[in-house]
């Protein structure tokens, strides 16, 4: 039973990280119908920003809590500005072009950012400072749920609640939902659609930055390439949950994380990805719009 719980929490914290990234995919898709392939890179840039800021602050000798908070803020601001800029440079000029053009532009942006970080920073793996200490009260169960797992789960939950409130009750949230439903109509009733789209990129990128910070302090290393696989997995999770649906992205991520963890634990980690993607195929066969996605009726 212990083993089951251990695997459960391993899967849950992995799912939580996927969820933070998957939200960006699903929100952008919901609003402009674009798969933002550069989103995994935003996560990577969040991790790199955290690395730089945390290292500098550690040298300055600030208290740990201050370092974590300032690093988090810096990562969010920096990644959000990347998200904002990417949208303006790579997607906005293509908004009325065929979907395929924007998709290619997204893939190009992803490669550009990877190589940019490779050249501007380093190709090496970098050791990430230990930002989350081992809490004494966690020690008895540290072999099941580590302190970093706990922080990941709490932070993700708080971020999700914040996002839900934002979408449900704020002005910008309402504007986002309206734009997602019908962009032309939203424009007609006076919603500044450009601003809504920018806001979506900023929020999605902020979430990815938090994910970058958390996973980097969890595994203790970063590299320019970490965004690729994480991005693909998060995208899979978003599709699994129903792309365009925010609760769907969270559910899809948790399901994906747990599947991978249990597949590793009870079958073999050789087949981790086989199980994850078989699950995706199965769900898409029986529910093509994903777990919580709305079936899209085509008007003829």
């Amino acid at each position: 039973m212990d083993y089951f719980i251990e695997l459960f929490f391993s899967g849950l914290s992995r799912g939580a990280i996927y969820a933070l990234i998957a939200l960006g995919y699903t929100m952008v898709y919901g609003i402009i119908g674009l798969i933002n392939f550069a989103h995994g890179e935003i996560y990577m840039i969040g991790a790199f920003t955290s690395f730089t800021v945390a290292t500098i602050l550690t040298i300055l000798g600030l208290p740990l809590l201050a370092i974590i908070v300032l690093t988090g803020i810096a990562a969010v601001v920096w990644s959000a500005s990347y998200g904002y800029t990417i949208e303006k440079i790579a997607y906005k000029p293509l908004r009325h072009a065929p979907r395929l053009s924007a998709l290619i532009s997204a893939i190009g942006m992803s490669m550009f950012l990877q190589n940019y970080v490779l050249l501007a920073q380093t190709s090496d793996f970098l050791p990430f400072p230990t930002l989350i200490p081992d809490f004494a009260f966690m020690e008895p169960i540290a072999h099941i749920v580590g302190s970093t797992d706990l922080v990941i789960l709490i932070t993700t939950t708080v971020s999700m609640i914040f996002l839900m409130v934002l979408i449900k009750y704020t002005r910008i949230g309402k504007a986002m939902r309206a734009t997602a439903q019908d962009r032309t109509m939203a424009m007609l009733v006076g919603i500044n659609v450009n601003r809504v789209i920018s806001a979506t990129f900023v929020i999605g990128s902020s979430m990815a930055a938090i994910g970058g910070l958390l996973i980097a302090s969890h595994i203790g290393q970063i590299n320019f390439y970490i965004g690729f696989l994480a991005g693909i997995k998060a995208f899979t999770a978003a599709v699994l949950g129903g792309i365009g649906s925010i609760p769907g992205a969270v559910l899809g991520s948790v399901v994906l994380g747990l599947t991978e963890s249990f597949a590793t634990g009870y079958v073999s980690s050789d087949y981790e990805d086989v199980f994850a993607f078989s699950l995706l195929v199965l769900i898409l066969i029986f529910k093509p719009s994903g777990l919580l996605g709305k079936a899209d009726t085509q008007k003829v």
Partner: peptide, 15 residues
């Protein structure tokens, strides 16, 4: 066991 290089974390295989 084999692990996938670049995977987000390896906690399940460690367990």
């Amino acid at each position: 066991e084999g692990v996938t290089p670049g995977q987000v974390d390896y906690s399940a295989v460690v367990q």
